[in-house]
Design a protein around this nucleic acid. Structure first.
Lengths: 332, 332
DNA sequence: ATTAAATGTGTAAACGTTAACCTATCATGA
DNA sequence: TCATGATAGGTTAACGTTTACACATTTAAT
């Protein structure tokens, strides 16, 4: 059973291929009689137009590419899902690629997407591939940076404020009496990681607190690195009484690490950038900076669709402000 | 800056388009000199072949479709991610669609994927669209059912054993002294839900326990329905002392529900089909049936690739056995 | 020296659509 | 009556590749 083409349908319905195309696309004039006959033939033969041929002819792929660093991180998947829904509703399809926080993989993914002639790009980038990115944007394809900016690359951008809430959080920790605060950060090549790091250090310094080298651990945003971090921190001569973890996965790792070491999850007060989903069930001293992946996704989709559908060209930057939420506070 | 075609490269390199194609695909004979010249031109012009045109000509899309019920459920995303990695490594791309457990959306997604001429399908189905599915499989396109079977549709299948571990779990609950056991199930149109339900009821009956209607709640695998379920169950004249929840999301909802009602998370013993990710940090009476999304994904990818790459045609069913793990047991 | 096989490259016809361009019919109004 | 525009539908040339075929030229084998 060969795959049917528009010609088969044309033959079956006794009209030309152009007419079939017109019926199926609702373009041009077609008499009601012919219309019905064509639809009947389509149904009878179970014909399905070839989207690939259509894309080629129309020179538009109706697809959008998205690169995200970690498909198993619910934060990014929530963004992705929101975007997908919006795009599908407008007749686009979304191609996801997972860069795994790896610039080389990111580059490959980018190549693949461009070969597929995506009409737009959503990028939660690794911070590498700057040159390629600049070139891309120069070439006119709409690119929206999502969650992370790429220094030196100016493009549309939707991200969260990574400084304000961190400052708040640090002030809270200091006012709660902590003098030894551990910090678990992400790779400084990633904008979110860098911003959170800088904001945290500065806030503590301004509060008159020295931040010792040994209290700062540089992780990679993975669960594993969060675990390693806390295990190192807790072995210090004077272990921290509070820890700031720069993303949700590392926070998770932090708790796994504590547990593995047999340390009570309550023995250290934690502030996490990014919620943990189950944190509301958690009876420990955990405060979180609540992110808004749906808002991020929604804004990113809107910006992209504006360019695609209404050829808006102004560059836009939207900053969403995450909320510092002091949860599950127990007395010290 | 128009998009470059193979003709531009041909002109630039002073050869025919066929030669460019041959160099880029490593097919046919090309002299080393010409080869170098072509590659130089490609690089200089920054040419990128049009995958759409290639697909059309070759009559193969190099893409695989996948429909999953819930992109924000980590269980399915882990499966998806595993599969994506395997497929990308073989030069395919994976198109995800989210059916949202809704047969109509599923149908639309299926249509979209077929229009895009996917060469294979991975399906964690809703249980609707049987007729269309049968037709699809009859048409020769490789279809692998993932996680869920569809009764009345015979196709390749990778799923977990939904009965054995449930039986074990029920036996455990009975032997632990529970006489009133609540059950929160999924929609019976979904095979996993039905199987877990039947296995649970049968096991209890065989253990000599009556299962009262009022202890069985029919949810929809969503967090929200888990919450509603537990809230209803706990209001019974004789509330259950243990609850079996048929998937991870509903288990989560269950705990949210308990919390909202101000009931201690320990006041009821829980068995969850599907792990909760954070369950190891959880100090409550929670046992889980541990699933193996990576294995599922891996097997599904293998089966599909065997058909695609080695035209294997034998139908295969693989059953992964989840493990019942008694965790965080406290004395009653 | 002759032939056959291997190597190198170009020409042009597909792949399945869409859309520009035609032609033809039929109302409508001046 | 005749032009005009709306309606209806067919022909055909693209879109950017790949590849079958053709034609040289070189190499190897007899």
């Amino acid at each position: 059973m060969r795959k049917l083409t528009i010609k088969d349908v044309a033959k079956h319905a006794g009209v030309s291929t152009a007419t079939i195309s017109r019926v199926l696309n609702g373009s041009g004039y077609v008499s009601e009689d012919v219309r019905r006959q064509v639809l009947a033939s389509v149904k009878e033969l179970n014909y399905r137009p070839n989207a690939i041929a259509r894309s080629l002819k129309q020179e538009k792929s109706r697809s959008i590419g998205m690169i995200l660093p970690d498909m198993s991180n619910p934060y990014f998947m929530t963004i992705a899902r929101t975007i997908q829904q919006r795009l599908v509703a407008e007749g686009y399809r979304l191609l996801f690629m997972d860069s795994d926080e790896n610039p080389d993989k990111e580059r490959e993914a980018l190549d693949a997407l461009l070969s597929n002639r995506v009409e737009g790009l959503l990028l939660a980038g690794t911070g590498g591939n700057k040159e390629q990115l600049r070139q891309l944007i120069g070439s006119g394809i709409p690119v929206v940076l999502v969650d992370r900016c790429v220094p030196g690359v100016s493009a549309d951008l939707v991200m969260e404020d990574n400084r304000g809430p961190v400052r708040q959080a640090m002030e809270y920790l200091v006012s709660a009496g902590h003098r030894h605060i551990g910090m678990i950060h992400g790779p400084k090549t990633i904008s979110t990681a860098l911003e959170r790091y800088e904001a945290a250090v500065r806030a503590l310094q301004e509060a008159g607190l020295q931040v010792g080298e040994e209290y700062v651990y540089s992780g990679d945003f993975s669960r594993k690195s969060g675990k390693q971090a806390i295990q190192k921190l807790m072995k210090l001569p004077v272990p921290p009484t509070a820890v700031f973890s720069a993303n949700n996965e590392m926070t998770f790792g932090l708790y796994l690490g504590l547990q593995e070491m047999g340390i009570g999850l309550d023995e250290v007060e934690v502030v996490s950038f990014g919620d943990l989903d189950f944190s509301s069930l958690f009876k420990h001293r955990l405060s979180v900076i609540m992110q808004h992946p749906e808002s991020i996704g929604d804004s990113a989709a809107s910006i992209l669709l504006d360019k695609l559908l209404h050829q808006k060209s102004a560059m836009e930057n939207r900053i969403i402000i995450p909320k510092f939420v002091q949860k599950n506070k127990l007395s010290l």
